[in-house]
Design a binder for these strands. Structure first.
Length: 265
DNA sequence: ATGGCGCCACATTGGCGA
């Protein structure tokens, strides 16, 4: 099962690129963030023609998340239970026995912003919810734009970024709290090149200079992590004309390798 | 230090993202 997370920064603009990506990379499950579309404008038909069922929760202009899958999706839920939030940031579904959670985590803007406090509280709510979900679904994957670079090696210039939003201690502590649930950062299960990033600013020729951050992640529960055979960042999409500022991140899981246990479904 | 780019909307400028 090939799992992908991609912040497309407007699906209206990026739909042709997404369709090319689906044909070229043949993923099984794709988590899409920042569709910036209402549900009635979501391109269900085009994706179905490409072989994918889709579920979406969106709004005008901001946020919006979708799950695409070749296999049927069941138990579809939106948002974080118990968190009153108008911002459409979370959608989850069960695909081929795997619980897939797609998240567009808040940016936070700056450490003194109300949006930063919202970001930290949002992560606490996410972590609290997923603790229970992991009990119910031992095979769980959390994919998305986390808007957190977990370590200094995930930042092109750690000194310049020191203490700022996306890398602050409080944000990194929230990321570690997710790992403490038993989730693994799939990218770090394998040897990776130095300076591997998933987002580059549109400005200042940041991509050409590889001035980026690794803020898009695929976290896997223990059974899935043990069955994970590879994890990469697909920089090809970032090289295109009119690219998203994020690259797709990919993790492959060999479902045949999963051991059958009493609680494992 | 600032702004750079790209997207969106009560649009031709301003808000926001990261």
């Amino acid at each position: 099962m090939k799992l992908v997370s991609w912040n497309v920064n407007s699906l209206k603009v990026r739909l042709p690129q997404l369709l090319d990506f689906l044909a070229m990379r043949a993923p099984d499950v794709v988590c899409v963030q920042e569709t910036k579309l209402t549900d009635e404008n979501f391109p269900f038909e085009a994706l179905e023609a490409a072989g994918f069922q889709a579920v979406h929760t969106g709004q005008k202009t901001y946020n919006g998340v979708a799950l695409l899958a070749r296999a049927p999706m069941t138990e579809v839920t939106t948002g974080i239970p118990g968190l009153a939030d108008e911002q459409r940031r979370v959608i989850a579904a069960t695909v081929a026995g795997v619980r897939v959670v797609c998240a567009y985590c808040p940016n936070g803007q700056s450490l003194d912003s109300d949006k930063y406090a919202y970001k930290l509280a949002w992560f606490d709510a996410l972590t609290g919810w997923l603790a229970g979900e992991l009990q119910r679904y031992p095979r769980l994957a959390l994919l998305g734009d986390f808007n957190i670079a977990p370590e200094d090696r995930d930042v092109h210039d750690p000194e310049a970024w020191k203490g700022s939003v996306l890398v602050s201690d409080a944000e990194r502590a929230r990321f570690k709290a997710l790992l403490a649930l038993g989730l693994e950062d799939s990218f770090r299960l394998f040897e990776q090149p130095e300076k591997a990033f998933s987002w580059w600013d549109y400005r200042m020729m940041a991509f050409r200079r590889n001035h980026g951050l690794r803020i898009d992640h695929i976290l896997l529960s223990q059974p899935l992590a043990r069955a994970c055979t590879g994890a990469t960042i697909d920089r090809d999409m970032r090289r295109l004309e009119r690219p998203s500022d994020h690259a797709p991140v990919i993790a492959e899981v060999d479902l045949d390798r999963l051991q059958e246990t009493a609680v494992d479904r």
